[in-house]
């Protein structure tokens, strides 16, 4: 199945979910709305309709638009060994960053995130990466906390001046 058809089907499914479930459940509309066009649900319904329309057109349009080449598509689809594992790894780094920010503080969490992502990217300069993992978050902390006056989360363990 070509990419346009898949996108079209996903768009149609998303439009159906919005119209049948998400908008009725998660968009509140007061009962005294004078006209449908002023209702808070009007705009989301219009956009869902446009999404469905785009989906239908995508389903019936072949992937032959201007400038596309078979070579380009092949290049982007070329598999790279270990890509899936590394993608899972970077996702884990991001999730852990959000979870650890309030506990470890932004500086320590960022140091760990820097080092972990450099390791995931298989850097050829591990020592430089470790030095940067320490210096970059410290430099950013100095700017945002002391120049911009932002209350950077300090965490529950080690606090910075």
């Amino acid at each position: 199945m070509d990419i346009n058809r898949r996108l079209g089907l996903v768009s149609l499914a998303l439009a159906a979910v919005l119209c049948l479930a998400a908008i009725p459940a998660f968009v509140s509309s007061p009962s005294n709305v004078r006209n449908i066009v002023l209702s808070p649900t009007f705009w989301p319904y219009v956009l869902s309709g446009l999404l469905a329309l785009t989906g239908v057109i995508l389903v019936f349009t072949r992937y032959t638009e201007a400038g596309e080449t078979a070579d380009g598509a092949a290049d982007s689809a070329e598999p790279v060994p270990g890509a899936g594992l590394r993608l899972a790894g970077i996702a884990a780094v991001m999730i852990l960053t959000v979870l650890l920010l309030p506990r470890l503080g932004m500086v320590w969490t960022s140091m760990l995130a820097f080092a972990a992502s450099a390791f995931l990217y298989r850097t050829r300069h591990p020592v430089t990466a470790l030095v940067c993992a320490v210096l970059v978050p410290l430099g950013l902390y100095a700017f945002f906390a002391h120049v911009a006056g932002v209350a950077i989360p300090q965490g529950q363990f080690v606090r910075l001046p």
Partner: peptide
């Protein structure tokens, strides 16, 4: 090295968006 630049961008994004 981009494999050091991108982790730096990640950290910069976290600080910038939080701020």
């Amino acid at each position: 090295p981009r494999r050091i630049l991108m982790p730096a961008v990640l950290v910069l994004c976290v600080f910038g968006v939080f701020a």
